[in-house]
């Protein structure tokens, strides 16, 4: 589904990713861990198509196509979803209206009928309950004045409504208390299915106790330094990232 090969990315001329390889198949959950500044968020932004990230070498194939050639909205319509680490606050744009516009844009691209206001609200109500979000937030401007936890729930709500094929979660767990963490994890788990894949970027092993990954990768100084199973995350929790440097030197 997703093939990242030898991906090199620079920001303002500074190399950030220096040869990332990653292969994700439908149904899989991949966790990407790594210390601050290792390039985790950059990897997410490149996949979502944010400007300012220059791909200097390598490439990304998504369902056999060159992902990097697609505009951000095309990617979304083809089923890629990025849950932002810092969702943007947009004054004046009603949350529910935005969600409906986005859902219908994606549905249109897929050849599905657009939802009218009534159907959409019904769908939304259902999903809102799943993420235990205050319905009042739907009437407010998009993310404006939302707490950190509310923004993250709103991201998960969007993910549920847009029904992606590949969901990328950029530290969605950070800054959440234990209850919110569980709700976010439940949301992800509810969407797990054989034809959907996840890339979960996280700092904390704890999140992976709720969202159990098939593979764990460690991004270190712009490369995947190690890959392994569920136990790798636990090992990192105990030993930290410091030993990776020694391994590399050795």
């Amino acid at each position: 589904m997703l093939e990242i090969s030898d991906l090199h990315v620079a920001v303002d001329g500074d190399p950030i990713l220096k040869g990332v390889d990653l292969s994700v198949r439908p149904g899989e959950v991949h966790a990407v861990m790594g210390p601050n500044g290792s390039g985790k968020s950059s990897l997410c932004h490149v996949l979502a198509g944010r400007e300012g990230y220059e791909v200097t070498a390598g490439g990304v194939a998504y369902e056999g196509e060159d992902l990097l050639a697609l505009e951000p909205d095309d990617r979304a319509r083809r089923g890629i979803f990025l849950a932002f680490q810092y969702p943007v606050e947009i004054p004046g744009v009603n949350n529910a209206y935005f969600l409906k516009a986005a859902v219908n844009a994606v549905r249109r691209a897929r050849g599905d009928d657009e939802l009218d206001a009534i159907d959409f609200m019904q769908l939304m109500r259902e999903k809102v309950k799943l993420v235990d979000m205050d319905e009042g937030l739907l009437r407010r401007p998009l993310n404006e004045g939302f707490s950190g936890g509310e923004k993250k729930r709103n991201e998960i709500l969007q993910m549920m409504l847009l029904d992606p094929r590949l969901a990328i979660l950029d530290e969605t767990d950070s800054g959440l208390d234990i209850d919110a963490l569980r709700i976010v994890a439940d949301g992800v788990n509810a969407l797990r299915s054989p034809d959907r894949a996840f890339v979960v970027v996280t700092h904390h092993e704890r999140f992976l106790e709720y969202v159990v990954p098939d593979r764990v990768h460690v991004l270190y100084e712009g490369r995947i330094a190690r890959s392994g199973g569920r136990t790798l995350a636990r090992e990192l929790e105990e030993r930290g990232y410091g030993h990776l440097r020694q391994e590399r030197v050795a």
Partner: peptide, 12 residues
Amino acid sequence: AVHYMRSRGLGE
């Protein structure tokens, strides 16, 4: 904000 909306499938 433009990017955020596009990443949710809205055209530019």
